[in-house]
């Protein structure tokens, strides 16, 4: 069944159809929320809420974009709102993820031909990048997650964010630069002599 058909059924109250939509979109939505909020629990909660809001709001969804894109926007907005509230609440501006949770939840990825040392390094790299990701601004974090984790295209990202594609492209470039800057500040992430740009 196509997404359109599932959405139509779900709109009529078909819970099974909606359950399928959940299955189809949960990984993307969860990862967006998990990375935007910086921790798995808030991520899971916001992701659940996004689906619930989608269910409630199906009547208002008229297929202007794909359901996936619409849902992504719901989740993204909810996370940004959450981060703003959190920031006001907290004296420290950023959360730091717990390394243990980080390691436990990550998908198992075979490093092609990598020896144990390299695999360990890779895991540390991931942790370092995850930390740096939490330290860049929410707007930068948002586009980085969309582009690099969810693999959304420029066009899709511009639909989700309601921005011109040109704006999306340059925001992504700046986000990447910001992330790199964080990692340089942290330490020897890139090894060797690095650029001062």
């Amino acid at each position: 069944m196509t997404e359109q058909e599932l959405v139509q059924r779900a709109r009529e109250g078909d819970e099974l159809a909606f359950a399928q939509l959940v299955t189809d979109n949960e990984k993307r939505i969860y990862n967006l929320c998990r990375r935007l909020t910086g921790n798995p629990d808030d991520g899971a909660e916001l992701a659940q809420e996004a689906f619930l809001n989608a269910w409630r709001g199906l009547g208002k969804f008229h297929g202007e974009s794909s359901f996936a894109t619409w849902l992504y926007r719901l989740a993204s907005n909810a996370c940004i709102d959450f981060l703003r509230r959190e920031k006001r609440r907290r004296s420290l501006s950023m959360t730091v993820s717990l390394d243990d949770e980080e390691e436990g939840r990550q998908a198992e990825l075979p490093d092609q031909g990598a020896g144990p040392e390299e695999r360990l390094e890779r895991a540390e790299d991931r942790r370092a990048i995850a930390r740096a990701l939490e330290q860049v601004s929410p707007e930068h974090r948002q586009v980085l997650v969309m582009r690099e984790l969810s693999g959304l295209s420029y066009a899709e990202i511009s639909q989700v964010l309601g921005l011109e594609e040109g704006t999306v492209k340059s925001r992504i470039a700046r986000a990447r630069a910001a992330l790199r800057k964080r990692l340089l500040a942290e330490g020897n992430f890139f090894g060797g002599a690095s650029s001062t740009r």
């Binding site: 990984k27 939840r105 990550q106 984790l149």
Partner: peptide, 14 residues
């Protein structure tokens, strides 16, 4: 390098 490693941050859904 970042572009290569970032996708590996994707996690399984709880």
């Amino acid at each position: 390098a970042l572009h290569r490693v970032l996708p590996e941050l994707e996690e399984e859904v709880p």
